[in-house]
């Protein structure tokens, strides 16, 4: 429950995982504490997701991906924009968490939320444009029409940076999902309390269940299971831990997952293109 140490005895919110559009507790019954900034006072007990939770999240992401990818780019754009709207509506909730658990000033916290909203709006606007920027009609020699289009790679696991960076990982989620990927996100431990309002943003944005799944837990424990999971097509690894990186890359080889290693912290076309495959279609031209 969040806000256990606030002065009034208000009803605190239980922070759970976000899998397949639902809010389950971890099946393991385990938790880890998040403290009020610079104190030993508990802010909340967060779910410490297990490999079974991870498995469920991947299964949810897998089953949601085709449908999400099959939506029109315009529709995905609308839904990402809706996320920005919902985040705007929860601005104060986010700020409160950042101030209380991470020690941000209100102004800093406000900026971070602003940047995250910017990221959602930015990629909302990109969902139906990147195809035109990177797609191509290729001038092949001979009577064939030949075109290349970018297509979602599939299920992407996002392992967030050790140091919590809200706007960065929201931007990454948006960059990943705007093209039609689904994702399983392993949040950084220290800011994981944000899972609650963030999941609510996703849950109330007409986003189909399973497209974005949020897990709190320990990367050291879960990263190997993500890396080895054969249903995952791509891993976005934002952590700097060299050993974990090598281990994840090694296990990823079993099904040749695409590895997006330490992606730049920027809003850009390049960020989207790290999570697409190029499909080239040939067709003859004749009577």
């Amino acid at each position: 429950m969040a806000g256990l140490n606030s002065t009034k005895l208000h009803v605190a919110k239980t922070i759970k995982l976000y899998i397949s559009g639902a809010f389950p507790r971890t099946e393991s019954g385990r938790s880890f504490p998040v403290y009020l900034f610079n104190s030993k006072k508990i802010y909340a007990h967060l779910c410490r997701a297990s490999r079974k939770d991870l498995r469920n999240a991947v299964a949810a992401a897998k089953s949601a991906q085709a449908g999400w990818c099959g939506r029109s780019a315009y529709n995905r754009s609308q839904i990402l924009y809706r996320m920005a709207e919902m985040m705007e509506g929860k601005r104060n909730e986010f700020i409160e968490i950042f101030v209380q658990t991470l020690g941000y000033s209100s102004a800093e916290a406000n900026d971070v939320v602003e940047q995250a909203i910017d990221a959602l709006v930015y990629y909302a606007g990109f969902a139906d444009k990147f195809q035109q920027l990177i797609g191509a009609v290729n001038p092949v020699s001979g009577p064939h029409h030949n075109f290349t289009t970018p297509e979602a790679v599939g299920v992407v696991a996002l392992i967030c940076a050790e140091k919590f960076d809200f706007s960065r990982f929201v931007g990454q989620i948006a960059a990943i999902t705007c093209s039609g990927n689904s994702t399983v996100v392993l949040l950084a431990q220290d800011g994981a309390a944000v899972l609650a309002p963030l999941a609510e943003v996703f849950a109330t944005s007409d986003l189909p269940g399973g497209v974005i799944n949020l897990l709190s837990g320990f990367a050291e424990e879960l990263a190997p299971h993500l890396a080895g999971h054969m249903e995952i097509d791509s891993i976005c690894l934002a952590r700097n831990d060299e050993n974990m990186r090598a281990a994840v890359k090694e296990d990823a080889v079993f099904n040749l997952k695409r590895i997006v290693d330490n992606p730049a912290n920027e809003l850009s076309l390049a960020q989207i293109l790290q999570f697409v495959e190029y499909k080239t279609v040939w067709h003859p031209i004749g009577f």
Partner: peptide, 10 residues
Amino acid sequence: TYNKFDPASP
């Protein structure tokens, strides 16, 4: 068609 290749085609 099948097995068509071209330098311009990814």
